[in-house]
Amino acid sequence: MAGGTNHTFPAACVHKVLSNDYLLMEILLRLPILSLRLFKPVCKQWLSLITSPSFILTRTRIPTIDPPSGLFIRRSSQNFNEYYNYDFVSFDPRIPAKRSILFSFNSNAEIVQSCNGLLLCYTLCLGEYHIYNPLISMFKRLPPLIYDLHYDRNNGIKYMNMAFDPTKSPYYKVVHVGTHGSVYDDELDHFIKIRTYSSETGVWSVWDDLFCYSSFDGFCLGTYWNGAIHWFSYYERFHVIKLDIVNHPVLTKIQFPLPLTNFQGPLVHCDRKLFKSHDSLLLLCKDYDHSRHLNIYEMKNGYSVWSVKYFVNLDDMMRPYPTWRMPTNWRCCDTLSIILGERDEDSFMVIELSGKILQYKFVLETVSELFDSGKPVISINDCFECIASFAHA
């Protein structure tokens, strides 16, 4: 408003813009993908535009990453037919939660990793890996690995992880680490060989470098951020391991922040978990195992220093909600996600408590129930962020 004048647009002008497919497409292309998903049912014209191949291709070329809209959580069940069923827990009240999410390419697919809109999945019955975009039901089977004489299939570790950042490249990489050596080699468990699959070339590449085996024991739980995969290793208790794979595999270490209390010893920060949100790598940890305080540290792109982002008292968090009792053995692995919002009051973490999925907002200090799964999450490796994306598998 300028000079107190209320600017309005005549209904005829609005209708003229919205009835023009070209103008409407230009408007829709500038919206977050989650909004596009919500706008599909508006009318047939909008649905046709949003789902058209030309629109999806054009939107894919816009380098953005939407914030997570929810979580895929594997259901705990003794029934084999439900073993690969996932529930969708929504962060947005406009999007309903769903039970028994089944993937279009295989009903027995297991999620291995989630990375900026794409899922790395594995089907045990076929022994195949797939890249899958659940928003547009697009999938691609990865070509099988070809092993050499010094790469044993049956012994040692075999881990997969995924690297994808659409703001930097439309192509993704899949990183495979495995024990290097033969079954007759006494040093079988001492070295790791790295292979990478690129969606740009469509083939696996083998790197000549050999890495220490002990650093990779937590690689399968790694978090991709800022061109590198980050994880905790049991053998490196005071560091985050970082594998840079932008050009050439480079392994480095990031030291933990000092504890906020006077606690010292070998078990400092022994309860911990990594997350990434927006442009930050987040470290959730306790100073010591039985602490009732959570420290959330933030690392920016420069890898300069950890800074304290949030400090959470577990008892104070649940005190206004006596029906949701926080157990004394509550651990960081029960935190499923940490999301940094555009505003501090929009930032929250998602926790699992006796089968209930709860959202805790740091600044507002409020707890709300997002979903009741009825049973606890199977493990920390069975919860994956869902990010709306038009990226091609």
Score class of each variant (00 low, 15 high):
N6I: 11
N6T: 08
N6V: 10
H7A: 11
H7E: 13
H7D: 10
H7F: 15
T8V: 08
T8W: 11
T8M: 11
F9Y: 15
F9R: 11
F9N: 10
F9H: 12
F9P: 00
F9I: 14
P10N: 08
A11N: 05
A11R: 02
A11E: 11
A12N: 07
A12Q: 10
C13P: 00
C13Q: 06
C13Y: 10
C13I: 09
V14W: 14
V14M: 12
V14R: 05
V14F: 11
H15Q: 10
H15V: 02
H15F: 02
H15G: 03
K16L: 02
K16F: 05
K16C: 03
V17H: 05
L18D: 02
L18C: 09
L18F: 15
S19F: 04
S19R: 05
N20Q: 12
N20L: 13
N20C: 15
D21L: 12
Y22G: 02
Y22H: 13
Y22L: 13
Y22Q: 08
Y22T: 09
Y22I: 12
L23W: 14
L23I: 03
L23C: 10
L23R: 01
L23Q: 01
L23K: 01
L24A: 12
L24K: 04
L24V: 09
L24Y: 12
M25H: 00
M25D: 00
M25R: 05
M25Y: 00
E26M: 11
E26I: 04
I27S: 04
I27T: 04
I27F: 12
I27P: 03
L29V: 05
L29D: 03
L29F: 11
L29W: 07
R30V: 01
R30H: 09
R30I: 01
R30M: 05
L31T: 04
L31Q: 00
L31M: 06
L31R: 00
L31D: 00
P32S: 06
I33E: 00
I33Q: 01
L34S: 09
L34M: 02
L34T: 07
L34E: 06
L34W: 00
S35H: 13
S35G: 04
S35M: 06
S35K: 06
S35N: 13
S35F: 12
L36T: 02
L36R: 03
L36F: 14
L36M: 08
R37F: 13
R37V: 07
R37Q: 07
R37D: 00
L38N: 05
L38H: 04
L38M: 06
L38Q: 10
F39E: 01
F39W: 12
F39D: 01
F39S: 10
F39R: 01
K40W: 03
K40A: 05
K40I: 09
K40T: 08
K40N: 01
K40H: 01
P41Y: 13
V42D: 04
V42F: 07
V42M: 03
C43I: 00
K44T: 15
K44E: 15
K44C: 14
K44G: 13
K44S: 15
Q45N: 10
Q45W: 07
W46C: 08
W46L: 08
W46V: 07
W46K: 05
W46Y: 08
W46H: 07
L47M: 14
L47K: 14
L47G: 15
L47Q: 14
S48N: 11
S48C: 14
S48W: 12
L49S: 03
I50L: 15
